[in-house]
Nucleic acid binder design. Sequence first.
DNA 1: TGGCTGTACTG
DNA 2: CAGTACA
DNA 3: GCCA
Length: 440
Amino acid sequence: MVLEYEVEEREIVRRGSEGDTKEAFDFSSKVTFYKKNAKETQSLLSQVSSSQITPSQDCKEIVESQCKYSLESDSDSENASISPGKYDISSYSFQLDPGQSKKQNIKRTYFACQKNPEQLKTSNLNEHITSILEVLEKNSHSQGEKWRAFAYGKAIRVLKNAKFKVNSVEDAKKLHGIGLKIQEKIQEILETGQLRRVQLESSDERTVTFNLFSQVFGAGPATVTKWYSQGFRTLEDLKQKAKLTYQQEIGLAYYEELQQKIPREEVTQIGKIVSDTAIAIVPGLKVVVCGSYRRGRQECGDVDILMTHKKTNCLTDLLPRIIQELEKVHFLTDHLTKIENTDKYMGVCQRAPGMPHRRIDIKLFPRHEWACALLYFTGSGHFNRSIRLWARKLSMSLSEHALVRRYSETEKGEPVPVKSEQEIFQVLGLKYQAPEQRDI
DNA sequence: TGGCTGTACTG
DNA sequence: CAGTACA
DNA sequence: GCCA
């Protein structure tokens, strides 16, 4: 049923429960890219499949020779299905052997980039715990303990996705990602309704200040630590005494505004402004609002806009022209990246005078990278990390540019010519997830 | 005990 | 290069 | 902080 991965569990490990094995092996994977010296792949595959790839097939070559898909071909990539003659990835897939199921449970646990579609979004039954863990996550994060924060984040997701309310440490133990320390914390929460450590930290000047400062755009743990040690405690201190980078100045200037969520409707309007402006300059441009908006959220943290051009691979200086125009009409108010020589823009915009300022990212990708770019820019962040990790385990590497074979840590092959999000899932042997399902 | 995603921009 | 950011 |  569900394929999940260790980092991104959505659910308790229901070992031996019904249905688990059978459907899990409905998993056809792109192991065309199998290579003997790719150690991890080898072990993964030996766990996963007893069927061998025909040794003489250098799959990479085969796939490449059959996959000359044209950049000019104007099938709408978003919903394109694989056209068999041209691009028959499926003929290189292999079926997993159900008999191997038991062994694989090791890695085969649950996988967030491949959650069960029938597992519809339910309300968070463990709000009483997650709300407290979220404080710990935030505190860890602003102090630069990123892996601790990562672990809290994982525990929080797993609790939110649990189908039952955690009423005991025993319940919590069943969830993958909850270890001893978090169990102790859950126990205390269940007994007292709170966590002393959180109470202490919420009145601790250092913690409070770190959290305050780390929400300034451009200020991370290192900067925040420096500011704190210099004796700064308020945003006023920073404005008056701290040495700020340009990004931090902007971040401070719009500190409150940028914390606000953006109603979906406003994101739609912002998207239209950008789209209309851009297409007026460059006819034929394709513009899609991604991020949490594309995942269907009613409120978004920022606006993510992805562009590509149907006709050409050469997009040089296109983005600067668009940015300049958006600036001219007073839509963009501040830049967080330099506007020349970039195809990844970050800035601040305002839909109309008097409206709050909003963070906006605009990225331009060549057509052949569209699928990977769309997948990346739609997220979520956790989803991306999960699917990228899965790709890594298959000795592949997924980025916003391409999906490639990984021959070693540093050596990578030519991109697998995926032209839709569906194909990326297919190549990775994962069931397609609509954007809404990636909101994890 | 080491890995926990992969990339681009800033200064 | 370290730091920060993006999903 | 969790897991293999």
